[in-house]
Simulated scan of single mutants.
Amino acid sequence: MDITQRTALVVVDVQQGFENPFWGTRNNPSADDNIAALIEAWQSAGRPVVFVRHDSTEPQSPLLPGTPGNDFKPYVEDRRGKGSGPELLVSKVVNSAFYGTPDLDEWLKEAGVDQFVVAGIQTNMCVETTARMGGNLGYGVVLPLDATYTFGLQGPFGWEQSADELSRSTAVSLHGGRFARVTSTEEVLRAAADA
């Protein structure tokens, strides 16, 4: 894996509202530590970092603007503005960070970025959608699966999938479909340190 000085880190929706029991049972308890380690590595190296926030339009959502749940988790908020490299805050109301404000694609291109690492919440929702769209737009996308987490869901026909099952489905779809290279935080950090 080749991580360059222009490889961006896109941190998706690491917000306090995802601590709300509303979502159900999460997986990957080490995800927050892994996300924090990625932010630290990117900021220390002066690489571009993008913080994405979901501003829900649903009145009952734990991510509603103006509520504490909309805020970034403290370990993310405390790191914002601390890196020596370029930084962007994107606000969105849909799943893809590429449909937020300001325009992520435009900002990445202006910064000379052609590859990004994506981490955050939820694996099979906003992280996956951002990764897919990044792949469609021609970016090299790297997804350290253990720097994401999600929650179990019920779908049609009474089907249910656990958080782990949904994460595996995302990993197989993204990696097998060549939208992204799915890997681990350890491998990304090792590649970043060697760059």
Rank of each mutant, 00 (worst) to 15 (best):
71 D>T: 01
84 S>L: 03
191 A>R: 09
146 D>A: 02
105 D>V: 00
47 R>G: 02
123 T>Y: 02
57 T>Q: 15
121 I>R: 08
2 D>V: 10
11 V>P: 01
150 T>R: 01
68 P>L: 03
189 L>H: 06
126 C>S: 15
27 N>G: 05
74 P>R: 10
170 T>W: 07
112 G>H: 01
20 N>R: 05
83 G>T: 07
36 A>V: 00
169 S>W: 13
29 P>N: 11
106 E>C: 04
9 L>W: 07
115 Q>K: 08
76 V>N: 13
189 L>T: 03
147 A>L: 05
158 G>V: 08
106 E>T: 11
170 T>H: 02
19 E>D: 15
5 Q>G: 13
74 P>Y: 05
71 D>S: 10
153 L>A: 13
102 P>I: 08
26 R>A: 14
12 V>T: 04
95 N>F: 10
15 Q>G: 05
22 F>A: 11
193 A>S: 14
164 D>I: 04
185 T>W: 10
87 E>C: 01
14 V>P: 11
132 R>F: 07
32 D>W: 04
84 S>K: 14
162 S>D: 09
51 F>P: 02
120 G>M: 08
145 L>Y: 04
134 G>I: 09
56 S>W: 05
128 E>Q: 12
143 L>R: 01
19 E>K: 11
12 V>K: 02
30 S>V: 12
146 D>H: 00
135 G>Q: 10
101 T>S: 15
60 Q>L: 13
160 E>N: 14
65 P>W: 10
24 G>E: 11
31 A>I: 06
58 E>P: 00
140 G>Q: 12
22 F>Y: 14
